[in-house]
Amino acid sequence: MERAKCLEVIYPELKDKLVVTIMGACAQELYNLGHRENFFYLQHAMGLASSIGLGLAKHLPKEKIVVLDGDGSVLMNLGTLSTLARYRPKNMLHIIFDNGSLLSTGGFASHTTSGLTDLAMMARGAGIEHVATAVNPLQFGEAVLDAFERDDFSFIVAKVQAIGPDKFGMDLHLAENAFRFRRYIQEKKQQGLKE
């Protein structure tokens, strides 16, 4: 399964959600589908995408938050799994694209290669209740729809190939992305107050 295909499958569903992605290929593939003001690309600080998601989810209970994480990134912040289990943000979906590779930094094998480290099992061990694994786009799409209907914290490991986009580049400065993402949220909040 290709990550780009997974992103294509869920892209229409992301229209009204707050999306936080990790760096590199994942960010680029989402951007290539068409940037939206509700997307934030964390192009560094590996491991913190899910912590940003938790901060958003706890302070914006009416919003749905989707975090697009990777095996290499989440392995840098495993404590996040237990923090997410403890605070259980009902309005958050945490997706890990597990390609068993540090693809964006030279394609070195990550610890999940060959099935040695099982991120889904680690999530369960951390105390996360709703954990799913997907190996094809249909399974992935269904797991995501289940998660959105569930109204509880959900965690999906999507097994994908270690391939990324041919070219990298965004017409969006990092700080500009942060400013616009925040403005999008604040305007939506204002709108909500008016309605």
């Binding site: 940003i52 901060g55 958003l56």
Partner: peptide, 8 residues
């Protein structure tokens, strides 16, 4: 990360 989420 949590502080960044709260700021957004």
């Amino acid at each position: 990360g949590i502080a960044a989420g709260a700021y957004f």
